[in-house]
Amino acid sequence: MLRKSQKFASLLVLLAAVGLATSSIASGHGDEKHDNSRVPLPKHSITKGDKCVEPTEVMRKSHMEFILHHRDKTVHQGIRTKQHSLKNCVNCHADPETKSVLGKDGFCESCHTYAAVSIDCFSCHTDKANASKQTMRPIDAIGQKVIAITGGEK
């Protein structure tokens, strides 16, 4: 009897394996590079500001948490602060020559390649700094009133 239930268990394992195999094949089209080293070495070429949005040590370890948290707040609640916004990272960290955070020496990509992390963010998000500077609308009537009250001061 034991033998049968063992065999049965092995069948279940097999089915699970088939499932896993299909899903990993499905996800396998990322170009992962397997490198065991977890010590990333980004190339900095910061021209704007000398500080990151959080202490460098913290950023190095937890930048994804900031971005992902901010992402959900922006998309679902319309919170559009600059600090942890992806646009903001890109605008600061883009290489002044390529204007991009990607590429062999790009800030995000170079480090991720090193750390064997693959992210899909830039298939949708632009990797270029200031990809489309928004043109601001002129101040309307309410704005004029506010300016009048506050004297245009912050």
């Binding site: 089915l15 088939v18 299909t22 089209h29």
Partner: peptide
């Protein structure tokens, strides 16, 4: 019953726009 379901679901999953997000 099990194998046909596995086959059907595999097709469904592999046709997703983002199967990597299974």
């Amino acid at each position: 019953a099990i194998t046909l379901l596995v086959g059907g679901l595999a097709v469904l999953v592999l046709d997703l726009g983002r199967p990597d997000r299974l």
